[in-house]
Design a protein around this nucleic acid. Structure first.
Lengths: 190, 190
DNA sequence: CGTGGTATTGACGGGAATCAACCAGAGTGG
DNA sequence: CCACTCTGGTTGATTCCCGTCAATACCACG
């Protein structure tokens, strides 16, 4: 790939695949995120658009010149990459150590929090957000099968941890409780 | 942590831990690798020295000034961070999708290849290397328990995929065969 | 109406975690 | 020297979570 670029609008997914087809998502590309590696020619991720997407592409050589000339750009890029590394590592903890239920709860908490940042919090301590993503994408993301994803969501629904409303809205009556189900985040203790 | 720095000599491990003690290694710090985040104050990894280690530390503010002044340093740092991100993502594939046996085989292949870079290849197609690491560290790294690690290594030994010699040397008679056991790497197909 | 994609649910089996016993080597101190 | 402990490793028995296989439902769409 002689091109690099960044996402202007839309969402794409980054995934890795084994020879027999087993698939693991390893990243999300949101607007402003970067695609392709300056300094390497081969980057063997599967990049799949999740929505309509518009990119801003550069020839690699051009971009590298740009990078040399503008140190601000380099710092910004470093910062974004460090963010992605942090996210990837926390995801390693999820993939390596969390149960299926905890993984689902973790994902829901993340999506709820992202939405909370956007705006509406209907009830204090609660949250609600749309779940546009398919079960398959969730499974690829969480290192599970779609059946397990479906079952765990059903279980959380039966237990009242979440409610599934029309057009894919999810309501979380008690976010703290769901955080407990998620196994918590990184241990802040020494 | 008001300090950042880099490893001069020795090896350290980066790990994340859940509140109940479940632990996942998320990175290795080898000589020249970087520690601590420029731009953030909190970094909640457990950093544990795996050997005697010597670091070269800077005050954060000082280092950030250095970073602004020398664009070469920033580029180098970006490059290293992108490498680490790539490693982390391939590890996500292992943690999310590979079986215990495949994880063990993958780790052994990686260590064999690293050693091959260093020097000796006794038999063509084979390899051998020292395994200084404990089962616990392997388990933390691979997202398994020590019992499972031990069992899978025993199984590979029984099947002749590997031989365990004195002072922790591992011999791999047929590296290609072990690669097959590892589930292969990332699928190069589109 | 049929068809394909997405989701749910059940039955079943297997793989890894858990619980537990045991062994080897290295200190440690009487 | 020997008893004791501690750490790291191996192995067995059992449990249970999740993957696999399968059937069914739902919905959009031609």
């Amino acid at each position: 790939m002689p091109l690099v670029g960044s996402v202007v609008e839309g969402v794409a997914t980054l995934a890795l695949t084994l020879a027999d087809g087993r698939r693991q998502m390893v990243g999300l590309l949101l607007p402003a995120d970067f695609l392709g590696r300056p300094g390497r020619t081969r980057s063997s991720y599967d990049v799949v658009a999740a929505t309509e997407i518009t990119l801003c592409m550069f020839r690699r050589a051009e971009f590298e010149r740009l990078l040399r000339d503008s140190p601000r750009l380099g710092q910004r890029l470093l910062d974004m990459t460090l963010d992605e590394l942090e996210v990837a590592r926390e995801w390693m903890l999820l993939l390596g150590r969390k149960t299926a239920r905890e993984r689902i709860a973790s994902l829901l908490v993340i999506m709820a929090r992202r939405q909370a940042g956007v705006g509406d919090d209907p009830t204090p301590g609660g949250a609600s957000f749309p779940l546009h993503i398919t079960r398959e994408a969730m499974a690829d993301y969480l290192g599970l099968t779609i059946e397990t994803v479906s079952r765990q969501i059903s279980a959380l629904r039966r237990e009242g941890q979440i409610r599934l409303c029309e057009n894919r809205m999810v309501e979380v009556p008690n976010l703290d409780s769901l955080v407990v189900e998620s196994g918590g985040g990184v241990d802040p203790a020494v």
